[in-house]
């Protein structure tokens, strides 16, 4: 039964409530890193990793530190610091243990701190009432992982399209950001189709 719930959360965050294309979160890296497919893959993997870990840690901090001390109002400030520290830590760890991976991801890691999808998923985990739910920690980790996968999916699709757009004849006023937004809009329209899905 719980497996089914977890699967629903996973599918919902990847397709139906895709963070980029339906919740409009994490647009800055979505626009900034989607020019090339290779870098998009690196960014996507880094975001999946950080979002999953951030969901886990922020959930624990909220449930076992902020609530017992009655300081829930410090949520925003704690979460953003945790995420910033986490990103820094992950960066150092990867640099130490796997220089090859660091070379691939290195430049994207600092950018993740200001990716609003990461803070977004941490706050959404709390707002979805996972704190009091059974297996709340597992649910928030799954939501974080799904969010990261959904972000990567959108990023990869976009990068694939943008590589081709380079060669397309586009009106000169629409080159660059405008045509990217039109593409994103069409993709969002397509993703709207998932909203009728029954799971």
């Amino acid at each position: 039964m719980e497996i089914k719930v977890l699967f629903t959360i996973l599918l919902t965050t990847i397709l139906i409530n895709n963070y980029v294309l339906s919740q409009i979160l994490g647009l800055c890296p979505f626009l900034g890193v989607s020019k090339k497919l290779d870098s998009a893959i690196g960014m996507g993997l880094a975001v999946i990793f950080v979002m999953t870990l951030a969901s886990f840690i922020t959930f624990i901090i909220y449930k076992y530190v902020l609530i017992p001390f009655n300081i829930e109002y410090l949520r925003t400030i704690t979460f953003i610091l945790v995420i910033a520290a986490l990103v820094q830590l992950v960066e150092m760890m990867i640099e130490k243990f796997s220089p090859a991976l660091y070379n691939a991801l290195g430049i994207f890691l600092p950018l993740i701190t200001t990716n609003c999808a990461v803070l977004g998923v941490a706050v959404l985990n709390i707002n979805s009432g996972f704190v009091t739910a059974d297996l709340g920690i597992l649910k928030s980790v799954v939501q974080g992982f799904g969010g990261g996968v959904g972000f990567t999916l959108a990023l990869l699709l976009m990068a694939g399209i943008r590589e081709r757009l380079e060669l397309a004849p586009i009106h000169k006023n629409l080159i660059g950001l405008p045509i990217t937004f039109i593409t994103a809009g069409l993709m969002a329209l397509a993703f709207l189709g998932f909203s009728g899905m029954k799971i």
């Binding site: 409530n17 919740q23 959404l124 707002n127 979805s128 009432g129 909203s195």
Partner: peptide, 9 residues
């Protein structure tokens, strides 16, 4: 009562 809606409770 509370139910899970499209994007939250």
């Amino acid at each position: 009562v509370a139910g899970n809606g499209y994007s939250g409770p």
